[in-house]
Amino acid sequence: MKKIIKRLTETYGPSGHEKNVTELIKNEIESLVDEVKIDKMGNMIAFKSGNSDKKVMLAAHMDEIGLIVTHIDENGFIRFSNVGGVSPYVLLGERVIFGNGVEGVIDKEKLDSIKELKLSKMYIDIGLSNEEEVKEKVQIGDVAIYKREFSDLDKRLVAKSLDNRVGCAILIEAIKGLKEVANDTYFVFTVQEEVGIRGAQTSAFGIAPDFGIAVDVTATGDTPEAKIMAVSLGEGPAIKIKDRSLITHPKVKELMVKVAEREEIPYQFEVLEFGGTDAGSIHLTRGGVPTGVLSIPARYIHTPSEMVDCGDVEYGVKLLSAILQEEIE
């Protein structure tokens, strides 16, 4: 499983440019499901038929945060804005890479105080000396991502875009391990989550599921002087109770707990005071869809070095796979 996570996290795929990730995942799962299609927004929907005609939708977003080019000045410096939640402080000294492989470094204008730091005072330098040269390689509207390779720390993994390629990996592994599913199951690899939970909205409308589960990362409270939050790395996948986009349907929570207890999978409850996931869109689709979230605890989210625990990920696959054996009422 580490191998697929490495490949996924080292692939380019900011919001709106998820094609490379889509292709990688498609190659992994195409032969194992009944149908794969890509919808108008770019979501990839893999379908596996089940024994009941109830429809279950699983969602993991493929997109990652990035930087979009807004201006190229006469000396070839590139100005940018954010795609999704990017902190200017995290960017200082970073290297970034564009979809065509062009690399650059980030620095800032001279500031009187570091508190003045914001994205509009920063730039990307790709090592070319004027506007014309730069424009041959990079255009306004192009998007760069962190350039950072995957690191295997044995029990824990560090990489960029574990949010949410680790969710994608869990869906892929679940597909690989499953012989049968109890319900008609749609594995949806969604686009544009980081810019406003968009892909899940249109794909859920098309599927009209009876039940939904999003698989995504969540924050933890287990680092020095962290914001209070009762989620820790290594204590199992988290069952979300609430975030800004969702209050988990009590029946979904009960089901997830029941399955985890039965399969002896460690789990924790998650109350997240900020943020949202694909579930926020799914549960408000059409006349409403009971929806929950299986969260993988992750430290340092939206930095180039997001960290997850291997045990949490493996238990995540196990929990999700077991849930897919449950008949939905």
Binding site: D39, K40, M41, I68, T70, H71, S81, N82, V83, I140, R198, Q201, T202, S203, F205, G206
Partner: peptide, 18 residues
């Protein structure tokens, strides 16, 4: 060249299946 603000397009492109 700004990524701020929004328009009706934001609603329209997410209608139904997109």
């Amino acid at each position: 060249r700004s990524t701020a603000a929004g328009t009706d397009a934001g609603r329209i492109h997410l209608l139904k299946e997109g």
